[in-house]
């Protein structure tokens, strides 16, 4: 089971880092939640997210905006995901893992961009594992300029 869960996360990271990002929303179920939050807001009980999607439709809108509407300096993210734990809960698994994301802006050296923890709910749909809920919790309160892609 753990291997299958890890494969989902590998695919998740690959679609963001290597693309195509347009296939990334397919890793979520229809009524999924995707959020990037900071530890600071969580600690204060504040619900604000840096990105907040309440449905797969909203996730698709976010991807469309990244690819077609936003003006961004060309860059690439690189995810490292480790330290998995998974606990079954009914038909789902509560999965936690650490993430580190490096950013490479075109023409500049690679820098560390974000580190934090995933608190996710994974379910099986049509034979494949998908995210029902994915919350990326950033350790730092501050973002190095712009947050362009999902974490």
């Amino acid at each position: 089971m753990m291997l299958e869960i890890q494969a989902l996360y590998t695919r998740y990271a690959d679609l963001i880092d290597e693309g195509p990002l347009s296939q990334w929303p397919a890793l979520f179920v229809e009524d999924a939640t995707y959020k990037i939050v900071t530890r600071e807001n969580l600690a204060r009980g504040w619900q604000l997210a840096l990105m907040s999607c309440d449905s797969r439709g909203a996730i698709e809108d976010r991807v469309y905006a990244i690819e077609n509407l936003s003006m961004t300096i060309p860059r690439r993210y690189r995810h490292l995901i480790s330290g998995f734990s998974a606990a079954p809960q009914g038909d789902a698994w509560n999965v936690a893992a650490n993430f580190a994301v490096f950013e490479t802006i075109e023409g500049q050296p690679t820098t560390s961009f974000a580190a934090g923890r995933y608190k996710d709910v994974v379910v099986r749909e049509g034979g494949a594992l998908k995210f029902k809920e994915k919350i990326s919790i950033c350790d730092a309160a501050s973002i190095k300029n712009s947050l362009v892609f999902p974490l």
Binding site: T38, N41, W46, L48, A141, K144, N145
Partner: peptide, 9 residues
């Protein structure tokens, strides 16, 4: 308060 965001520009 709904929350804070911070960025270094």
């Amino acid at each position: 308060i709904l929350g804070v965001s911070r960025q270094r520009i």
